[in-house]
């Protein structure tokens, strides 16, 4: 019950977001606790990316309240604790002058003091992150020349380089082959279990979600939070789940 004494990493209360006169997210309340392993699913345009962007302060909610590590989003400063890999992160500009190492080192930028050279600790953290993602052999390769899956690993290594407490990944596995995907899930679950990193990731591959996931959020304008993902998956297939959630949203609107 140690969780009870620690405030959640994310505490979201009654979040609403509308843009161009359209409700994109409505009445979202959720909590994400230390050490959790959460998957977010939902149809295209359901608002998954938007939810993450709101959580990270990249988008302002219309109404509602977001707390990170117990602090109001506005006053939150310790962004080093959060590792974020956005959707399409792997689609880098082919000509961008960066080696894999250059990219991973970016993850240390805000930890380093002005003018300071890379410290032993910086070098070690970058090396560890690359080792965890198994990309040490790609160090000096230009990112533009890497495969989609390799680039994805580089982006995650960058997020890991600041030794975050939580890793947020927006569809990190698109364009990655099945074998790599399975390795990838193993890796996420290893990070979660062995390094105690909280993991939140958005995916469409509901079928391959590993057993390790603690909770499942279905986002389709509203959030449906499922505390036992295995039960959810066994009772309905994917299209049903999406259909039901869409239907629920519809009904809900009429109730109010």
């Amino acid at each position: 019950m140690s969780i009870a004494f620690k405030s959640p990493i994310f505490d979201v209360k009654n979040l609403n977001f509308s843009a161009s006169g359209q409700d994109i997210l409505a009445h979202i309340s959720l909590e994400i606790f230390h050490g959790e392993y959460i998957a977010i699913i939902g149809p295209n345009g359901g608002g998954k990316t938007t939810l993450i962007r709101l959580l990270l302060g990249l988008e302002k909610p219309t109404t509602g309240n977001i707390k990170i590590f117990g602090k109001d989003l506005k006053h939150f400063k310790e962004w080093n604790k959060i590792g974020f890999v956005p959707q399409r992160a792997a689609q880098v500009d082919q000509n961008f002058p960066a080696t894999a190492l250059d990219i991973v080192r970016m993850g240390r930028t805000s930890k380093r003091k002005l003018f300071s050279r890379e410290s032993e600790e910086d070098i070690q953290a970058v090396d560890d992150a690359m080792a965890k993602m198994d990309i040490l052999n790609l160090k000096d390769k230009m990112v533009g020349t890497l495969s989609g899956g390799q680039r994805q690993r580089v982006m995650i290594a960058r997020a890991l380089a600041s030794n975050p407490e939580i890793l947020i990944l927006d569809e990190p596995n698109t364009g990655v082959d099945i074998v790599s995907q399975q390795n990838f899930y193993k890796l996420l679950s290893k990070l979660n279990k062995e390094e105690n990193i909280t993991i939140v990731f958005i995916t469409h591959d509901i079928g391959v979600i590993a057993d390790d996931i603690g909770r499942l959020f279905t986002i389709n304008q509203k959030a449906i939070i499922c505390n036992d993902p295995k039960a959810a998956l066994s009772c309905e297939d994917m299209s049903d789940l999406y259909g039901i959630s869409a239907h629920l949203v519809h009904n809900h609107k009429h109730e109010h």
């Binding site: 302060g57 990249l58 310790e78 962004w79 959060i82 992160a89 880098v92 960058r158």
Partner: peptide, 10 residues
Amino acid sequence: YDEEVAKTSG
């Protein structure tokens, strides 16, 4: 390289 990722890393 990426304005938003830079922002979310502080």
